[in-house]
Design a protein around this nucleic acid. Structure first.
Lengths: 341, 341
DNA sequence: TTTCATGGGTGAAACGTTTCGCTCTATGTA
DNA sequence: TACATAGAGCGAAACGTTTCACCCATGAAA
């Protein structure tokens, strides 16, 4: 049905090799170039990527596996990833693991069958076992956001620990001593942030009562309930650290429904960027993750690996130096912190 | 590098044809079946989908083009689409148009080059021109959420007009006469909802002052600012219709920051489902779109078309009956509407 | 005038599957 | 016994590209 290179051959009288050369940007006589272009136009010819892929053994497709496609963080990252990949001529094949490790493993195998040239993974699992088939096939992988335990894999992430440390430091510098944390320990990013917070509190010798530690998951519900509970305490905290986007959302809703005001009654600092921060009143102080940069670096790194693979610079059986890129989250200005004491 | 069917042939002594038959679920002697399975296991063989695709001229891949991947509505739909496609053995290749018609057109061409078997499109453009190359190649397309002007294309959408009509009717039935609308006219869904609202107001002979009509786009900012403005009016509305997820988000934030309470001072009804609705206090009354069902129907319809194409049931040059599937959005219970007067 | 490089062009093999038409054996039936 | 039938397997062609090795002019250098 669709036109092939052979139709162009018949139309122009040139050989397949010449036409292929044209398609891949080689040198031709202007005259022949013109002929081919005309034929392409009238035949509506488009390269069959499957045929091309078969011989070059490149699909020009990258598999992207995300833990949950329906949340904003993921959506934004996917947007940027798509942009950069497209610029380089790659398509993204996106699979959603719905926070389920079993589905995640299936996704990886599925993409492998699709012969993707590489994978970018924001993992659910904590251990790298599920990537074994990928590594065996020498398909490059770059992890994003969440590194895996005991793995020698490339990864692009954020300095969660340090950024959380700095965030709580800011609270302490403003004189706060009654600091509560609403955060998560169900994912590595949450754990790191938690560690950062606790480290600072330890360094400053600030004691945290058990009732101030709200450790759950990265959900709106956890943020909402935790904030409600904190506000009911006899001795309320004067400042709260909010561990991610969803927690912020829930916590701010709970606060808005209460009689208390931010920052007069309660100072807030949050982790994760979000559009809402610009609208919430007062504007939140935030540790902003450089999502765009993360996407850019992940693509750059992955394409570098793919290139190394092709040029035989391939490590002997996985013995290459893996890169862990840690990008800084920056504290963004806001008005949600008041001086205390 | 990777094992091929030929390696299996050498290992088992069987012919290529037999092995292929096995891979595609044909009948074999148990003995041979066992041999092949063993070989596959030890060689870690996986089908090369590009080679298979080349001969079957099926990629088992569906192109999905969305207007904006970073928002929650899209993310959720993508999640469901992915699920259903996977069940049928298809992969989704997702392209984000970032609300840019130019990018959208590029996306379509790009996917065409990737030889997708079909496309699901949530369009930016209002006219079907950009799909011309797809149609010429007889690649089936199903639109989602937003139909296109003057097109004979399959589409799965929601009865925006009727649902909006019912939503405002509910407000009117509760006795409200001062009803404001925060909605959008920048996309067809917004326009339809607006029409539905206005139709009911006309039927009930309810006049709407210009200051009650907040028509902008589907953004948090529009919702936020509009609600602020409404609350500042000398004669405040007693009820507000909120046109979509983002508008709800913005409007509710503005309301929370104000001294006014819902539903005592202001009744609300919203369009679009969202997790927050369960947490917002009081629980919002919502017109809920059946997203899961939409995804399911879109996949079903698309796969039907693909099947028809293959079985030569193909219409002569686009003369098939196109289906416009209109699914009902249902009003979900909540406490955000008070009786008035 | 010979030699050499260079740029444009070519034919054919290869990539890893599926599929068509054929053969062979075993089974059941007249 | 003869004969159709079905099941299992086979060889080879096809799918639409890229790429390798080779060819032929042309023009510059020796």
């Amino acid at each position: 049905m669709a036109a092939t290179i052979r139709d162009i051959k018949n139309m122009t009288g040139l050989s397949l090799a010449t036409i292929s050369k044209y398609l891949n940007g080689g040198n031709l006589l202007p005259e022949n170039r013109e002929k081919i272009e005309e034929a392409i136009r009238t035949l509506h010819y488009e390269v069959n990527e499957m045929a091309r892929g078969l011989v070059t053994s490149q699909s020009k497709t990258i598999g992207v596996v995300v833990f949950d496609i329906s949340n904003v963080f993921t959506g934004t990252v996917l947007q940027y990833l798509g942009e950069y990949l497209r610029e380089e001529g790659y398509a993204a094949m996106i699979c959603d693991s719905q926070n389920d490790p079993v589905l995640e493993e299936q996704n990886v195998r599925f993409l492998l069958g699709k012969k993707v040239d590489g994978m970018i993974v924001m993992p659910v699992a904590q251990a790298p076992g599920f990537l074994e088939p990928v590594l065996r096939n020498h398909i490059p992988v770059v992890l994003m956001d969440r590194p895996l335990k005991d793995s020698r894999l490339d990864c692009v992430k954020v300095n969660n620990r340090e950024a959380a440390y700095d965030a709580v430091k800011l609270l302490a510098d403003y004189g706060h001593r009654r600091i509560a944390l609403i955060s998560a320990d169900t994912v590595i990013t949450g754990q790191e942030r938690l560690e950062g917070c606790l480290q600072l509190l330890k360094d400053r010798k600030i004691r945290v009562p058990r009732s101030y530690m709200k450790v759950g998951d990265h959900s709106i519900g956890h943020g909402y309930r935790s904030m409600q509970e904190l506000l009911k305490l006899k001795e309320r905290p004067t400042a709260v650290f909010l561990g991610n986007f969803e927690i912020i959302l829930g916590a701010v809703m709970a606060l808005n429904e209460s009689p208390y005001q931010c920052p007069e009654d309660l100072s807030l600092i949050g982790f994760d960027d979000l559009i809402i921060s610009n609208l919430s009143k007062p504007k939140l102080v935030l540790a902003v993750q450089p999502l765009r940069k993360m996407a850019e670096e992940a693509v750059r790194l992955l394409l570098k690996r793919i290139d190394q693979n092709r040029n035989g610079t391939d490590k002997e059986d996985g013995q290459y130096e893996h890169e862990i890129l840690v990008l800084p989250a920056k504290i963004a200005e806001g008005k949600s912190i008041a001086r205390c004491g």
